[in-house]
Design a protein around this nucleic acid. Structure first.
Length: 495
RNA sequence: GUGGUUGUAGCUCAGUCGGUUAGAGCACCAGAUUGUGAUUCUGGGGGUCGUGGGUUCGAGCCCCAUCUUCCACCCCA
């Protein structure tokens, strides 16, 4: 007999019945919306080949990946042991994984496996291909609030089209899901990798938008002073940082911000590229609507993409523009995004982003299928759950369960109850019979604990008369009724 | 990966300066009540004080290690 206390790995959780019911409610809202927009379900294995995943999420991602130890390692033949030892030493000496030790890993997100799927089945699927996927992913991150090592993502992605219609629909889906869940105060932030690249170039840091992004993404957290400090440490000059803040100083409506930024990043201030002609032409709102009028400038696409998304949304008569914010400081790290990027924040709750996504032009290219652009986003269910719990937004109706419990007294009443139980179930009422003829107190208590709203008592009197005793557990009222009457009553929605 | 934090009954937590047999509320079980839950009353069970070492005559309390929780970084859903 082991005295060992059972436990589960760090950052993982069990979900009890009450929690699963609520989680399923969230899943169902998300699924319904995805399907409404024409996305179909897909599932992929929990583990992928390590080679499929490595290098797709940057250095950090590679480190946070759960790698799977090859099986049979302890059974290797004597002759191979020395070689194996070598590999182990290599593995222990530095962050390096050898195929002799590990060649599989748990999936880190759903987008890369999806790209892998698309490439593998390129001949079987019709493009544009729209799929949604709701499965757990694993990251060896250190657990924190809203941060787990095993968590669910709900992805919707479409590959095989460049159309900004997809981006616009993503905004709509986010808005619809969160609104349906009862959330009202949230912000869908949108930005574009081209904006970030343009800002980097404008301060003479072409190609280094990575470290600039990491810094400015914290603007709302540590303020200008904090960002300045970080950039100074990275070797940027004060004057350059001033330029950066000047560019970021945008305000007003979506269009006003876009226009302001368009003029600020149209021409690099720093390290002038000889092949690039300084464009003094002032961009106007008209130019945004007819971008062909503008002579080409770097990162024009970022501006016209964002404008295009807005135009589609206006066409949809999207009426929640106050929730859509163009935020040039939004800098999502995932290394594969190339176009628009999204992030969603619920306001006035202590929780990071609950959704994010973006367009990626070269994910399938990494698997040998170039020229297939894709865009997608993901909901973090675990975080949405915490937010709904904090705001007490789970509806009572989302709590499903048994509606009526049959209480038995002895073998005779148990047998008598069986056809009744079946009839109730046939009528679509979730019903259960207490499986033992124990004391009434115990059976009633069971109904109470499970919050079963009705109990049917079947004793000798009831069997003799055919009138069953239906007890309302909330009010305590009971009345004698025939089975058809009971079924009618239970099917009537509560007033 | 860095810095901090937490762990005592199923749950939430007390536990004084290191000193006898570690407590409370809730929950659970039984009875009051052999055809009635939630309310009331009475009684009961339940602890290797996260784990492993150390200091001490003596450790829930002090020291070290380790695991876990939560938080801030890095990064991210």
């Amino acid at each position: 007999m082991s005295k060992e206390k059972p436990s589960i790995p760090k950052g993982t959780r069990d979900f009890g019945p009450a929690v699963v019911v609520k989680r399923n409610y969230i899943f169902s809202v998300i699924k319904r919306t995805f399907q409404k927009f024409g996305y179909l379900p897909l599932e992929t294995p929990a583990m992928e080949q390590l080679s499929v995943l490595t290098g797709k999420y940057g250095e950090e991602g590679d480190q946070l990946m759960f790698k799977i130890l090859n099986n049979g390692l302890h059974e290797k033949k004597e002759a191979e042991k020395e070689k194996l030892q070598e590999h182990w030493n290599k593995l222990l000496s530095q962050p390096y994984s050898t195929p002799a030790i590990t060649e599989r890993a748990l999936r880190y997100d759903l987008t890369v496996p999806f790209a892998r799927f698309v490439v593998m089945h390129r001949n079987d699927i019709t493009f544009p291909f729209k799929r949604y996927q709701i499965q757990p992913v694993w990251r060896a991150d250190r657990p924190q609030k809203g941060r787990y090592r095993e968590f669910y993502q709900c992805d919707a992605d479409v590959v095989g089209t460049n159309s900004l219609l997809c981006e616009a629909e993503i905004v709509q889906m986010i808005d619809e899901v969160l609104t349906t869940l009862g959330l009202t105060d949230f912000t869908i932030k949108i930005n574009h990798r081209g904006i970030l690249a343009g800002m980097a170039e404008s301060i003479g840091a072409k190609g280094k938008e990575g470290e600039i992004c990491v810094a400015i993404d914290k603007l709302d957290k540590v303020g200008q002073a904090g960002v300045r400090k970080e950039l100074l440490e990275k070797g940027y000059l004060d004057s350059r940082i001033d330029q950066l803040f000047e560019i970021l100083k945008v305000s007003g409506t979506f269009d006003e911000k876009l226009l302001s930024l368009a003029n600020k990043i149209k021409s690099p201030i720093g390290e002038i590229d000889d092949t690039f002609e300084l464009n003094e032409q002032k961009i106007t709102i008209n130019d945004l609507n007819n971008p062909d009028n503008i002579t080409d400038w770097k990162h024009k696409k970022a501006i016209t993409d964002l404008k295009g998304v807005e135009t589609y949304l206006k066409g949809f008569k999207f009426n929640h523009f106050e929730r859509l914010e163009f935020d040039p400081t939004l800098a999502r790290g995932l290394s594969y995004y190339t176009g628009c990027i999204f992030e969603v924040k619920v306001n006035n709750v202590s929780m990071g982003s609950i959704s994010g996504g973006g367009r990626y032009d070269n994910l399938t290219g990494m698997f040998g299928l170039p020229g297939v652009s894709g865009v997608g986003f993901s909901f973090g269910v675990d975080r949405i759950y915490d937010v709904l719990e904090e705001l007490q937004l789970f509806p009572e109706s989302s709590q499903v369960g048994t509606r009526v419990l049959l209480v038995q007294f002895d073998k005779e009443s148990e047998l008598y109850a069986l056809p009744l139980l079946q009839a109730l179930r046939d009528a679509g009422i979730s019903a259960e019979l207490y499986p033992e003829a124990t004391k009434l107190k115990k059976q009633m208590n069971y109904a109470d604990q499970k919050k079963i709203p009705f109990v049917i008592l079947i004793g000798s009197e009831e069997m003799a008369s055919g009138k069953l005793k239906l007890r309302n557990m909330q009010s305590g009222e009971q009345q004698d009724m025939t089975l058809p009457e009971i079924i009618t009553q239970l099917l009537t929605p509560e007033a």
